[in-house]
Amino acid sequence: MSHLKYMLLVSRQGKVRLMKWYAPLSSKAKNKIMSDLTSLVLSRKPKMCNIIDYSDHKVVYRRYASLYFICGISSDIDNELLTLEIIHRYVETMDTYFGNVCELDIIFNFSKAYDILNEMIMCDGSIAETSKKDILTNVSMMDSIENNDNLDRVLS
């Protein structure tokens, strides 16, 4: 089962581009995780495996161009290999949505990145939708409702 604790998107320079916490943590704990993992993950060599033991849980990460996708998972419950697939599915979905997604897309449209993530992963980090098509349809539907509202407002 998937039971993510958090998902962080960190640039190669160590800047956080997106963060989503699925477990309630104090801000002190969050900051510690972020600073620890940034240095830990950035220092990994390309040939190393994508799974790290960290504190009382495991961390699975994957790098796409200049961006690292980092997920915290529970040690015994989660499937590390599947978590890699979850990350990949998220990236694929964003890629279709933005059309060749790059780091800048995520920086400037972070709320869209969150929208897509929220359609895919719910509650305490469990995967709720696996169809790329469904996620994109629903996110675009909501986008168009928003646009129509805006149009109405301008016209009135």
Binding site: M1, S2, N79, L82, E85, I86, R89, I127, T130, S131, K132, K133, D134
Partner: peptide
């Protein structure tokens, strides 16, 4: 095709 991952049908659901 919408659930296909590298030739495997919805591994997420299978594992779940």
């Amino acid at each position: 095709p919408s659930y296909d991952v590298q030739g495997i049908q919805d591994p997420f659901l299978q594992v779940e």
